[in-house]
């Protein structure tokens, strides 16, 4: 999640953000850092691709590679 010095947004109605919301914000911050402008009409498909990939990256963080 991007940190811009403001209080962290905890999602709608004060609840924790959903994994999809977290992924979308994370990806937006990546694109901003890289200076890439994503056409808005293409964004839903891009984010639909990023969300499962983020889940895969999380999976790999939990795997002890010596135990495959």
């Amino acid at each position: 999640m991007a940190h811009d010095g403001k209080e962290e947004d905890t999602g709608a109605h004060g609840t924790e953000p959903s994994p999809a919301e977290t992924a979308d914000r994370e990806f937006a911050s990546v694109l901003a850092r890289l200076g890439i402008e994503m056409p808005s009409d293409l964004a839903p498909g891009v984010l639909a691709g990023y969300r499962p990939m983020r889940a895969m990256m999380e999976l790999l963080r939990t795997v002890e590679t010596c135990d495959v």
Binding site: I36, M53, M57
Partner: peptide
């Protein structure tokens, strides 16, 4: 449209994530 939507998510793979994947690849 689909090509763009399939390629751009790769921007979100960080160095640590890629290194973890490469190490797991070696073990697999």
């Amino acid at each position: 449209r689909i090509t763009y939507q399939k390629l751009l998510p790769g921007a979100g793979v960080g160095a640590a994530d890629l290194l973890r994947a490469m190490e797991l690849r070696r073990r697999l």
